[in-house]
Amino acid sequence: MGRLVIGGVVVAIIAALLFYFYSSGYRAQIDQQTQQVSQLNDQLQKLQSENEQLKTQLSKVQAEQNILAAQNEEMRKGIAEFKATGKMPVIPPPPK
């Protein structure tokens, strides 16, 4: 009977040690994954900020493109008028 109790205690101690080592390794893995998630969130925020800046710059470029297209059309009309009449048309100066 004493051997069974001692054997049970030894098995329980071994099981406790195995559980401790497994759980400490598991905790280390969770900590590492938590750190990776934090780094990825930081990168995501940085990329979202950069994306917003690029969208703003794109809208400025598109607005400038629209202005240039309108000016180009005015120039085409002026050239056509000059070819038709031989007189220089009055073209307003481009906005600054």
Rank of each mutant, 00 (worst) to 15 (best):
92 P>I: 09
11 V>Q: 14
38 S>F: 06
57 Q>S: 03
90 V>Q: 14
90 V>Y: 09
62 Q>R: 10
26 Y>F: 07
23 S>D: 11
25 G>I: 03
19 F>Q: 03
7 G>T: 12
31 D>W: 08
11 V>Y: 10
92 P>C: 03
96 K>F: 12
5 V>M: 10
39 Q>Y: 07
27 R>G: 02
8 G>D: 13
73 E>L: 14
20 Y>C: 05
1 M>S: 13
84 A>R: 15
76 R>H: 09
8 G>R: 15
29 Q>T: 08
96 K>H: 11
9 V>T: 13
17 L>D: 07
43 Q>G: 02
58 L>K: 09
8 G>V: 10
54 L>S: 02
26 Y>G: 00
21 F>K: 12
34 T>C: 04
55 K>Y: 01
49 S>Q: 06
21 F>N: 11
5 V>H: 06
51 N>E: 04
81 E>R: 02
65 Q>A: 14
28 A>F: 06
18 L>C: 09
44 L>M: 07
66 N>M: 06
37 V>D: 10
63 A>D: 08
22 Y>R: 07
90 V>H: 13
50 E>F: 00
81 E>H: 11
86 G>P: 00
88 M>E: 14
26 Y>V: 04
14 I>F: 05
51 N>P: 01
28 A>M: 07
82 F>S: 09
90 V>S: 14
16 A>H: 03
73 E>M: 08
34 T>Y: 10
31 D>L: 10
82 F>P: 00
58 L>E: 03
56 T>Y: 06
3 R>N: 12
81 E>I: 01
70 A>W: 03
64 E>P: 01
7 G>M: 11
44 L>N: 08
59 S>V: 08
27 R>W: 02
70 A>S: 11
35 Q>D: 03
69 A>Y: 08
76 R>M: 08
53 Q>R: 13
37 V>L: 15
93 P>A: 14
69 A>C: 04
69 A>P: 01
85 T>D: 01
74 E>S: 12
56 T>A: 12
57 Q>K: 04
37 V>R: 10
35 Q>V: 02
41 N>M: 04
9 V>R: 11
71 Q>W: 05
21 F>G: 03
18 L>R: 09
77 K>M: 13
93 P>C: 02
4 L>S: 12
13 I>A: 10
76 R>A: 11
88 M>I: 15
12 A>P: 00
48 Q>H: 02
85 T>I: 03
53 Q>Y: 09
48 Q>C: 00
9 V>P: 00
2 G>T: 14
30 I>R: 14
68 L>E: 07
30 I>Y: 08
93 P>K: 15
49 S>F: 02
10 V>K: 08
16 A>N: 05
87 K>G: 02
62 Q>S: 06
21 F>T: 12
52 E>C: 00
88 M>G: 11
70 A>K: 13
42 D>G: 04
18 L>G: 13
37 V>K: 13
53 Q>E: 09
38 S>Q: 08
33 Q>A: 05
33 Q>F: 04
47 L>H: 04
60 K>N: 06
